[in-house]
C-alpha cells in the first residue's frame, strides 16, 4: 500500500536503492556511452536546427538547414548518390561474398580455415596503412601498376588518372572499399556456420534436401538468421560510413566532387568551413538513413529460407 502512494522522486530513489548493484556495475560504461556515443547524436539533432560556428552561440534557424541540404546543395545530392551506390553495390556484394566464402571454407580443416579467415579479415584491420598501397596500384603515372600493365600490353597510350579523373574515381573507390569491408560480418558468418546444429542436416536429408544449395537455403540460413542480421547491421554501418578512404585516396574534395560521400561532405562543412549546424543536419540525415536500412534488411533476412 505504501509503495503506491510514494512520490515520483521517492520512487526513483527506491528504484535505484533496490537495483543499486546493477546500476553501479553499469555506471562506468554508461557514463562514457552517454557522453561520447549517445550525446553526439542528440547534440547533432539540436545543432541541426541552428547556425553554429563554435565561436558564437548557436542561432536557431528552424528547418532551414534541412531545406538547404535537399534543395540547395547540389554536391549533397552527389554525396547522397555516391553513399547510396556504396551501400547498394558494396553492402550486398561484400555480404554475399563473405557469406559464400564462409560457407565454402566451413568444411576445410582448421588450419587452412584459419588462414583464409585471417586473409579476409586483415584488410579490415590494417586501416590507412593498408590503403596507401592502392595509391601506387592506381597511380596516375606510368609507374602505377594498372597503368603500367595496360600500357605495356598496348591497351593504353596515355596513363589514366584513376584517382583524379571524375569518370574513374568511384569505380576505384568501390574496389578498395570492397577489399576492406569483408571484416566483421565474415567472422560472424564463420562462427555461425560452425555452430549450426549438425543433426539438422541429417534431418534435412530425410526430408528430401537434394544438394548443397537446398541445404543452405532451407537449413543453414534459417538457423543462423541472427548472425546474418548482425552481419548486415555491421555492413550497413560500414557502407554508410565510407569517407576516410575517399578523402585519403581521391582527396578532400575529390575532383569535381566525384568521390564525395555524406561523410566527406560533413568533413568538408565541419572541418574546413566551420558550418557546424549545416554539417550536423547532414549527420542526422545519415543516421536516419542507416536506421531505416537496418529495418529493411532485418525484415528481408527474417523472410529468407521460409
Amino acid at each position: 500500500m505504501q509503495a503506491k502512494k510514494m512520490s515520483i522522486p521517492n520512487r526513483i530513489a527506491d528504484y535505484f536503492k533496490r537495483y543499486r548493484t546493477s546500476w553501479l556495475m553499469m555506471a562506468p560504461f554508461l557514463i562514457f556511452f552517454v557522453i561520447f556515443t549517445i550525446f553526439p547524436v542528440v547534440l547533432s539533432i539540436i545543432l541541426s536546427f541552428t547556425d553554429y560556428d563554435m565561436v558564437q552561440a548557436p542561432i536557431f534557424v528552424g528547418v532551414e538547414n534541412y531545406l538547404q541540404v535537399f534543395l540547395n546543395d547540389e554536391y549533397f545530392i552527389v554525396a547522397l548518390k555516391n553513399t547510396l551506390i556504396f551501400s547498394i553495390i558494396i553492402g550486398p556484394a561484400s555480404y554475399v561474398i563473405c557469406f559464400l566464402v564462409a560457407w565454402l571454407i566451413n568444411e576445410l580443416k582448421p588450419l587452412p580455415r584459419a588462414l583464409v579467415t585471417a586473409l579476409f579479415y586483415i584488410p579490415t584491420i590494417v586501416g590507412a596503412a593498408g590503403w596507401s598501397v592502392w595509391r601506387l596500384i592506381f597511380s596516375s603515372d606510368q609507374y602505377g601498376l594498372i597503368n603500367g600493365f595496360l600500357m605495356k600490353f598496348g591497351l593504353l597510350n596515355e596513363p589514366i588518372g584513376w584517382l583524379t579523373d571524375e569518370a574513374y574515381i568511384m569505380p576505384v573507390l568501390i574496389i578498395v572499399q570492397l577489399w576492406m569491408s569483408m571484416g566483421i560480418s565474415f567472422l560472424t558468418f564463420i562462427a555461425g556456420f560452425q555452430n549450426v546444429d549438425k543433426t539438422l542436416y541429417e534431418a534435412g536429408m530425410m526430408d528430401g534436401v537434394k544438394n548443397r544449395f537446398q541445404e543452405l537455403w532451407y537449413i543453414t540460413i534459417p538457423s543462423m538468421a541472427n548472425q546474418m542480421i548482425f552481419g548486415a547491421v555491421m555492413q550497413i554501418v560500414n557502407c554508410f560510413a565510407v569517407g576516410d578512404v575517399s578523402a585519403t585516396l581521391a582527396g578532400l574534395p575529390s575532383t569535381g566532387y566525384a568521390g564525395e560521400t555524406i561523410v566527406t561532405h560533413i568533413m568538408d562543412y565541419g572541418n574546413l568551413r566551420y558550418e557546424f549546424g549545416y554539417a550536423c543536419a547532414m549527420g542526422v540525415v545519415l543516421v536516419v538513413m542507416m536506421q531505416y536500412s537496418k529495418k529493411f534488411v532485418t525484415w528481408l533476412i527474417g523472410r529468407m529460407g521460409h
Binding site: P40, V41, S44, L47, A241, M267, G270, G283
Partner: peptide, 9 residues
C-alpha cells in the same frame, strides 16, 4: 559518423 559532434563535445 559522429566525429563532428564528438569533436565539439
Amino acid at each position: 559518423v559522429t566525429f563532428l559532434p564528438s569533436f565539439i563535445i
